[in-house]
Amino acid sequence: MSTSTTLEEPKTGTWDGGNEPLKASYGKLMMWFFLLSDAFTFGALLIVYGLSRHAHLPYTGKPEDFSFSTEYWPIPEKVYNAFPGLHGMDLPLAFVALMTMILILSSVTMVLAVEAGHRMDKNDVQKWLLWTILFGTTFLGCQAWEWAHFITGTDEGMILADGSRVFGANLTVNQYGPPLFADLFFFITGFHGTHVLSGVVLLVMIFINTVNGVYHKRGHYEMVEKVGLYWHFVDLVWVFVFTFFYLI
């Protein structure tokens, strides 16, 4: 009797189980979806920036005649025009350009570390991870300077209607424009900087593991790939922050 029953054929479709439909490991997939959720957070911050900016008066005069006022949103290149060691010079966006280059370079050294990991070349992984850590910490140092300058302010500051002056910025008042301008500067670049800091910590951790031969014994350098994904995401966010915060 039992010999005549037709057994159900096992399903073998892409989503029927028993295989990897996305052909990526669990760890990498979870990193992708974490980054997606993180992108929502950064997206929300940049959306709030766009909304706040459009809810304020734009500056309509000539760029040469621009002066800081709480009445309108400032022109970014008039705010970010300082460079370490070159006091009092008007160098619009020069320092941000340097920071962008440093972060793009760190992304390249990160890919090179991942590539070396595919070849199981321990020495190359170490070398490129060290370069990435170096560029990452340099970027953090640059951001610390940028913040210090933004908080301290310029020599002239902003003259208020009653003749008093405001220097630099805090969360309630700033010399550059409406209070929200400085608030969003602190939140957006600060949130990005926190991500860079976490990235550097992760990089130091996988560097130590690489030196100790943990991944070599494991037989693959997938952890370097996963941290690499995170690191490129931080670079990607900076590309957007750079455009929406500093250029537009």
Binding site: G50, H54, A55
Partner: peptide, 8 residues
Amino acid sequence: ISEGSYYF
């Protein structure tokens, strides 16, 4: 962003 313009 267009909502911000409308609000303004």
